[in-house]
Amino acid sequence: MSDRLNGKVALISGGASGIGLAIAKRFASEGAKVALGDINAESGEKVAAEIGDNAMFVTLDVTKEEMWEAAFKAVIEKFGKVNVVVNNAGIAIGNNIEDIPLEQWNKVVAINGTGMMLGTKHGIKNIKNYGGGSIINMSSIEGFIGEPFNLAYDFTKGGVRIMSKSAALYCAEKKYDIRVNTIHPGYIHTPMVDTHPGLVKLEESKTPMGHLGQAQDIANMALFLASDESSFATGSEFVVDGGYTAQ
């Protein structure tokens, strides 16, 4: 690997597994110091130890503002600064407009919506003190299109896309040199998906390229957005979906 992120420090929510884990490892391989924020301390500590001295774990419930504040404080105390925030933590619970319980709606909105807002808010408040950087918010192809049985998820992923544009314009107006962009994965191999062969086949049939993406595909896009190579990209959407939304 090269050193495309040499000297950068990244905080990644949902960093203990799946796409977040792939991003953390990719960033570290390119010279970054990485902080894995997650509610799963056992996995997070294990992964940080595997990555080595350039990684740390911070306990992070993305719905709690005080935990975001504590996470940034811990990262800055250990690594001296923060340049990149990847707001990756999220959940999906199938539901529809007629039957969704309010409690379920509120849970998805709290994690996928409020959690993203808090990560972006405190990312800006901290990154601006260290010469600028990049905030990468994980949306979805469902930030563009709807599904009948993914109501709350669709709501939050569409909201993340527009919120990120607002934040990007704010940072540009304030001359903070902070870029805010969204990544929109299509159907990706994850441990949860791969335990359901029928779901894999269904998602493959919907994807023009005929196969699902890998977590590494999303990590590669995040690497570009975290690096100085994307210095003129802000308020934009980066789709990695095997052609799904081109249909």
Rank of each mutant, 00 (worst) to 15 (best):
F144K: 15
G7Q: 04
A167I: 09
Y130W: 14
T63G: 02
A152M: 07
N150K: 02
N40S: 11
G90C: 07
N150G: 06
V82H: 13
E45I: 14
G186F: 10
T245S: 01
G235V: 08
I141T: 09
T156A: 05
H211R: 14
G18D: 01
D99A: 15
M209V: 14
V82W: 09
D99H: 09
D38F: 07
G115Y: 06
Y176K: 12
T156G: 04
L36M: 08
I124L: 03
K107C: 06
A92V: 02
T207R: 01
G158S: 04
A70L: 07
A16R: 00
G133H: 09
L199W: 13
I124P: 02
T114D: 10
V109N: 05
S140Q: 11
I188T: 11
Y170V: 08
M67D: 06
D241Y: 10
D241G: 10
A35G: 04
A172R: 10
K165N: 04
M221L: 15
A16P: 03
G235T: 15
K107H: 03
F72R: 03
K78S: 00
N181W: 12
Q216P: 04
Y176E: 03
H184L: 03
G243T: 11
H189L: 07
L102N: 12
L102V: 09
K25R: 14
V200A: 06
K174R: 15
V86C: 01
G37M: 07
V180Y: 13
N126C: 11
R4L: 11
V86W: 00
G90A: 10
I39E: 03
G159H: 04
L169M: 15
N126R: 03
G37P: 03
K206V: 00
L21P: 02
I97N: 12
K81C: 00
I97A: 15
I97S: 15
L5F: 06
P101C: 04
V82Y: 03
Y176D: 13
V75C: 09
F155Q: 08
S29N: 05
A233D: 12
R4C: 01
K33H: 09
G20S: 13
V240D: 10
T234D: 11
T120M: 15
A215N: 15
E42H: 04
G143T: 07
A55D: 02
V239E: 06
T63Q: 13
G123T: 00
I136P: 06
G14S: 02
I97Y: 00
H211N: 09
A41K: 14
Y130F: 15
A110H: 01
M117C: 12
N6S: 14
A10G: 15
V85W: 01
I178Y: 13
E173K: 15
